[in-house]
Simulated assay, not measured.
Amino acid sequence: MNKKRIIIFDDDTTRRDSLSMLLNMCPDMECVGAFASAADAVTHVAQTEPDMVLMDIDMPRGNGIDGTSRIKSAYPLLPVIMQTVFDDNQNIFEAIKAGANGYLLKKTPPDKLLEQLREAFDGGAPMTGTVAIKVLQFFREEPVSPSYKLSEREKDILKLLVEGHSYKMIAAKSNIAYYTVCNHIKKIYEKLHVNSATEAVKIAILQRLV
């Protein structure tokens, strides 16, 4: 089995070391780089060729949101998962606008963190529960924008994507087959004019679609 390659950006040395050790203990993932700043994020990505980035938000040199934006500009298909102690609205939505594929709090237990990283590799957009709640509150508080002619089933599936569920989890929660979920998501992408779950979630949030 080829291990998924992950790099870490976090200015906390102890946390970098702990995350590196955790990933390297996994049979299906490994840490191929750990850095204290996102100032040279694109260079580090080019050098390490990762399959995923774990990005801290609050770093004194090289902000994680700016780093994510630069990475996504250069590598739009590379998943970036934000990790932070903050769950305030501004950080959440700035991270999503920057192109983040998920948003996890640092207090997430190790086993849950690994599960959510695997979900991200499987096409999901994982979010810690409190973050997902804030996202849904944002939808309820803001005016509804054009629907893009999404069906009710497509809206339900898009909502589950926004909540951070993988395709497999969406199939289970919706009581439909995995391939049916894939077909619905393909249609959602066509209607939103996007090519990935990250872009779909971003439009759903910015346009208040669910």
Rank of each mutant, 00 (worst) to 15 (best):
R5H: 14
I7M: 14
I8H: 02
I8F: 13
F9Y: 05
F9S: 14
D10Q: 05
D10N: 06
T13K: 10
R15C: 05
R15H: 03
R16I: 09
R16W: 10
D17H: 09
S18K: 06
L22K: 03
M25G: 04
M25C: 06
C26G: 02
P27V: 04
D28V: 09
D28L: 06
M29N: 05
E30I: 03
C31Y: 06
F35K: 03
A36S: 15
S37D: 01
A38C: 10
A38T: 10
A39Y: 00
A39L: 14
A41G: 07
T43A: 11
H44W: 12
H44T: 02
Q47D: 12
Q47S: 11
Q47K: 06
T48A: 15
T48L: 09
E49M: 05
V53H: 11
L54I: 07
L54M: 09
M59H: 06
N63G: 05
N63V: 02
N63Q: 04
I65E: 12
T68S: 03
T68P: 09
T68C: 15
R70W: 09
I71N: 14
K72W: 04
S73L: 11
Y75R: 04
P76L: 07
V80H: 04
V80A: 10
I81R: 07
M82N: 03
D88F: 01
D88T: 10
D88E: 13
I92F: 08
F93D: 10
F93K: 03
E94T: 11
E94D: 13
G102L: 09
Y103P: 06
L104G: 11
L105C: 11
K107V: 15
K107A: 08
K107Q: 15
P109E: 00
P109M: 02
P110M: 00
D111W: 05
K112Y: 03
K112S: 09
R118N: 11
R118M: 04
D122L: 12
D122R: 04
G123Y: 01
G123T: 10
A125C: 15
A125W: 00
P126I: 07
T128F: 00
K134T: 06
K134Q: 08
V135E: 05
V135L: 13
V135I: 15
Q137R: 14
Q137M: 12
Q137F: 14
R140Q: 15
E141Q: 13
E142L: 04
S145K: 10
S145I: 01
K149L: 12
L150Q: 07
L150Y: 00
S151I: 00
E152W: 03
R153S: 10
D156Q: 15
K159Y: 03
L160P: 02
E163K: 13
E163Q: 15
E163M: 14
G164D: 12
H165A: 11
H165K: 11
S166L: 01
K168Y: 14
K168H: 09
I170A: 08
A171S: 14
A172T: 08
S174H: 00
I176R: 08
A177C: 01
A177D: 12
T180V: 07
T180H: 08
V181F: 01
N183P: 00
K186W: 01
K186Y: 10
K187N: 10
K191R: 15
N195P: 02
N195V: 03
A197M: 12
A197L: 02
T198P: 01
K202E: 14
K202I: 04
I203H: 05
A204V: 04
I205F: 09
L206H: 05
Q207I: 00
L209Y: 02
L209I: 13
